[in-house]
Design a protein around this nucleic acid. Structure first.
Lengths: 316, 316
DNA sequence: GAGAATTATGAAATTGCTTCATCCGGAGCG
DNA sequence: CGCTCCGGATGAAGCAATTTCATAATTCTC
């Protein structure tokens, strides 16, 4: 009764506490006795008694003072209670978090952007989104470094912004809005004279692009590669503002989505021209896992991503 | 109960997370796969697979991405991992604490003092004790308000300082040191003329005592009650220093343990006299639960409590 | 595409938690 | 006292969750 057999149950290998035990300790303390606690925990007084016995065996010491009738925590028991009072709320928080996840109030929205310029409209969208879904974990990852669609498939990201839809099982390409890649050049540039430009016009130009593989760039995929034209040179620049700066100072030409140029139109000395007489039109998509389109916050995000950029363009 | 009775998934009534689950999540993450994790956790891969399935059922969502072969945490899984990384160390700390308790490196030493003046020597003892046993939770509770020995029995305190040993089952009275209650009076007091005092001498005096019941006061239990003498008046004063002040200014007489008077001897205008011709001698005890005498820190405390006060008296 | 590696699954076995029925010991009371 | 209630302990038995075994189903790798 007073001492436990060291050889029997191996607490020499460390005790194996479970939350059940902490909940028990806490319940007994709060209920002020074993029988009452059993009520709270929806089990018999006997079960609790057995459990406490087992726990004390593991702890290697008495956790309760039995000399007083409604059982009371011993010094050691109080230490365990303190721990329970630290730990259990954390567990509750976790469970609460998952309740939120299930209810669709929280979740993850990690967005990979292949189109480098998409920051421009995506940021306002996310700004708006966060107001409505404060518990959703939002992030943007420049999808340049890795293959975005496999990453989507493997749940490393949740949305891929792309203008090249593919037929992939389990992936849905949700259309967002249309845009036109436009030619941008210094107003002093000879091509500024033409009402529109064509693939051939690039042959003698220094083309400034984002540092992305050519297949992901509209100029190449839509204009130059089909016409088998290679520009005189290509220079890769990261930031949109810098590209426009270089263009304005006539250090090269670029092709950018119309919304980008419209956004920063006020500040410089360059002109935009359509590509081909009718201009070209492209459609942007948000690729998601098919199952997730129906998630409330995802649906909301898609709605925002369809509407906000259009508003921005009108304002711009 | 009826957790898995629901036709779809059994998560309607809140999930019941256990540490086992968190350990599993953590292990799979760290091992980078289910099979390896199973090794670490000393169970079969199958068991883990089943467990994960059960956990996911409770969570109401997939915690792992299966599309890649060494399975990987999903967004939700990562959230659970974060929780595990917060919670599990706390549990380890608790287990560590109990390892300390078992090893006797930590524990509780709450001391009740019936003898009000014992602060004087107890404080230095505890000062010394804390250096050797930093993890032991030390406290002193003036044992005046409650019945100290029952409290010891019910593990509300761990040591009771007393000079009245009783035969109680499971309680050991460890002798500490001897002392003499001595009579203290102003040097202008008539009794200062006598070489020693007796019970009768108190009949016309104002006796100053600690505010404790009479049975706990040496004057009464050892001198006045046996002789059936009642002093002219009794005044209760809390602080030793104040008692001596009053005595020095001849407002009354007192009986105090010799060590108390010796401690503050330098400062005043009073004399001490033995009680009865030979003086009386009393022995102080530290009562503990019998099982605990063997605990290392308790043994050390008792040793200190036997030696330090004696040293103090010699120095005083 | 074969083989290795990794995870899933169904059924049986095991473990250990829970319950049932009963006992024990103390506190309160007529 | 002797009775009874209250709170807890205990042993045996039931039962359910967890684990294992054996094997299938995927996916990865070369």
């Amino acid at each position: 009764m007073k001492q436990f057999h060291n050889s029997h149950k191996g607490y020499e290998y460390g005790m194996h506490i479970e939350l059940r035990h902490l909940r028990t300790i806490k319940a007994i303390h709060e209920a002020g006795g074993l029988a009452r606690a059993a009520e709270i925990l929806n089990m018999t007084q006997s079960a609790l008694s057995h459990q406490v016995k087992g726990l004390e065996e593991q702890a290697g010491m008495e956790l309760f003072v039995r000399r007083s009738k409604p059982l009371k925590l011993s010094a050691a028991g109080i230490r365990m209670l303190r721990a329970a009072e630290r730990i259990l709320p954390e567990v509750s928080a976790l469970e609460e978090e998952f309740r939120g996840l299930r209810a669709g109030k929280s979740g993850r929205l990690h967005i990979a952007i292949e189109c480098h310029a998409c920051f421009e409209w995506l940021f306002p969208v996310l700004e708006e989104f966060r107001k409505a879904w404060p518990d959703v974990d939002v992030d943007i990852r420049p999808g340049l470094a890795f293959d975005a669609l496999p990453a989507l498939w493997k749940e490393e990201v949740d949305v891929v912004i792309s203008s090249d839809p593919e037929e992939i099982d389990g992936v849905t390409f949700n259309p967002l809005f249309d845009y036109s890649p436009v030619f941008v050049a210094s107003s002093r540039h000879p091509l500024a004279e033409k009402p529109f430009v064509e693939a051939e016009d690039f042959r003698n130009e220094l083309l400034i692009t984002y540092p992305v593989e050519r297949t992901k760039l509209d100029v190449f995929s839509q204009v130059l590669m089909p016409a088998k034209v290679e520009p005189r040179a290509v220079r890769q620049v990261e930031l949109t503002a810098v590209i426009l700066l270089l263009v304005a100072s006539n250090r090269g030409v670029a092709v950018l989505p119309d919304w980008v140029v419209r956004e920063v139109r006020y500040n410089s000395d360059y002109v935009t021209r359509p590509i081909t007489e009718q201009g070209i039109s492209r459609r942007l998509f948000a690729a998601t896992r098919s199952e997730e389109v129906s998630k409330p916050f995802m649906a909301h995000f898609l709605r925002l991503a369809r509407t906000i950029p259009v508003k921005l363009q009108r304002e711009g």
